[in-house]
Design a protein around this nucleic acid. Structure first.
Lengths: 340, 340
DNA sequence: CTTAGCACTCCGCCTTGCCGAGTGCTAACC
DNA sequence: GGTTAGCACTCGGCAAGGCGGAGTGCTAAG
């Protein structure tokens, strides 16, 4: 049996109608929406076929049908029409981003907020991973007689810092050390820094313990990447009728509280176009009733990720459009624009 | 009518029983729990009195009674016995904190996580406000030919930074400028920095626009205090039976997504002891079915806040004990301990 | 191939009745 | 006078039964 034009049209109607109302869709409703000279009986036959083919399921005998994961998949991949955001919407998003952003961290945080408000779903934004970013400068700053702050800036404008104890040294020593560090490390990927530091050991041995602490710091900063995940619009999930029972919502939140779990949902290669994970397709039990629209954005050489998490019957077209648009805007921000 | 010893004992029993089971408590139950030669009928009379006095309410005729806000208030203020945390618990908390903390931000974040796991409620931690903190150093770091990073460290170990465009200047100029800034600003409250900068204008006029940007940055950093709120254990709220209906939970989450609203809940003077906000006592509509146990902690001269948000029938004694303990631990961390 | 008709299924909703828990009141008891 | 037993009453929760509506599958006719 093949998905001919008519089956396709009916499938599309069922999916869109279900997305709109949340209810199972019956043959009569399809006829009403899908204006063509067809009777409910004919549509019933087609829908029976679609069920046999695995695109629709009946929650129970003698109810309407709802899309299966596979049905949503076909819809997303082939049937859905791309949505254009309205002028007002794009302007609103741009305004929100440009007026509140003053550094990379706030850019990411505001993105989470804006995406959740624009979609009315829950948004997830993973800040760039440090290891793929290039180091821009390393400085050692005195903040006390035997205390200093190591500050590493990255090409993308991130600043990582850590307090360390240092042996007594003069200000000139510290500047010299900073220069040596920057000279040797600038331009390198963050992931390579510990290795580089090891090979510099001789050159800087006279700075003693600082160098050890620094290596330790760098290694940790890469491994325990901190505070990468930002979320917005948690309340939106709770307003979805499929999560009326808060225990269902609790399963979702338990997953989201675990950053490693969230990483699994975003296991996509750099530069992938916007993709969609539907229901059981996603690897975590707790969110198997959800869909995730996810994309990537670049900040220089670093890669961030952005996602919209909603019920399976989410408005995919709109979510995709918003993610695409925001991705683009974020990348614009790194176009050497000054002022932050 | 006075709250004599017997009424008090009955009130305590009702509150504790209701906290334990979540159900309205009847006279028979009270008799079973409160071993004293009294019949249910007597207890009924007493409970009727307690209701008249405003400490108990009946959800509907012929159900048991539950505590009113005022009933909880008396319980919290006068009846509740202080809980001692067990050795294992205190050790667990200490371990969690010390093993994962490597700077102030991570301390705050981990505190949120630990408190929510220890209490099984939702935790809120407000990082110190910058304006009450003293500035420790100001540095200008070159990160490009005409680009620099302003890095301000505070006494509490916070690091605020911002990229700025600079006029061409030599490395020596930058170091000199950094020294001038640090000399003039170190030790001052962050809130005073903009004023100080203004009065330095002549001395540093030759650095041109940098000084303007710096003032702008400082002013903003104080006003738009960013990312102060950390939360943990959102899923815990959803497991409470009173929030079974996720729309109730949604109201709570809507409040918590708004940082200014959360600030209102924490409107307590510096150094206050642990206090409790019960139900309608709190100023925000969305959380009127919740109670908040809140405390403050000091990091040097800066003030942070910590709260446990749960249903009104939360385990107050335990929550208070945990908040007290964690407050103390956090302050210990600032005791000049090195290593982070 | 399409359609009308029909019997059937099953959910959702309402009503009814019943049980249990708890109350308030009254009268008796110590 | 405080305490208690007894009793009638109230109300939520639950299960059972009935009904209407929406939807289906099948069959036979167009």
């Amino acid at each position: 049996m093949r998905l001919d034009a008519r089956k396709t049209a009916i499938l599309r109607t069922v999916v869109e109608e279900h997305i709109r109302t949340g209810q199972p869709v019956g043959s009569r409703t399809v006829v009403r929406k899908y204006h063509l000279g067809l009777s409910p009986a004919t549509v019933r036959n087609e829908m029976a076929d679609l069920e046999e083919m695995g695109y629709l399921v009946q929650p129970h005998t003698s109810a309407g049908r709802i899309p299966s994961d596979r049905g949503y998949r076909v819809y997303v991949d082939e049937l859905m029409e791309e949505t254009k955001l309205s002028k007002e919407e794009t302007r609103w998003i741009e305004e929100q981003l440009s007026s509140r952003v003053r550094d990379i961290v706030s850019l990411i945080r505001e993105t989470a907020r804006v995406v959740s408000e624009a979609t009315n779903y829950l948004s997830l934004v993973l800040g760039p991973q440090l290891d793929t970013t290039s180091c821009q400068s390393v400085h050692l700053l005195r903040v006390g007689p035997e205390r200093a702050l190591i500050v590493i800036t990255t090409e993308t404008g991130f600043v990582e810092s850590r307090l360390v104890d240092i042996p007594p040294m003069t200000d000139e020593d510290m500047s010299a050390f900073s220069r040596i560090l920057t000279k040797n490390l600038a331009g390198r990927k963050m992931a390579d820094l510990p290795g580089r530091l090891a090979s510099m050991k001789d050159e800087v041995s006279r700075y003693g313990r600082v160098i050890t602490t620094l290596m330790d710091f760098l290694t940790k900063a890469l491994v325990e990447r901190e505070e990468r995940l930002y979320m917005g619009g948690q309340a939106n999930i709770l307003n979805q009728p499929e999560f009326r029972d808060s225990r269902k919502a609790g399963e979702v939140f338990s997953v989201l509280e675990n950053e490693e779990a969230v990483d699994k949902l975003f296991d996509i290669p750099a530069g992938s176009p916007v993709s969609v994970l539907i229901g059981e397709e996603n690897p975590l039990y707790g969110v198997k009733d959800c869909s995730l629209v996810r994309g990537t954005f670049r900040l220089g050489s670093a890669l961030g990720k952005i996602g919209v998490l909603g019920p399976k019957r989410m408005d995919y077209a709109r979510a995709v459009a918003i993610v695409r648009f925001v991705e683009e805007k974020i990348s614009d921000f790194f176009g050497g624009r000054s002022g932050w």
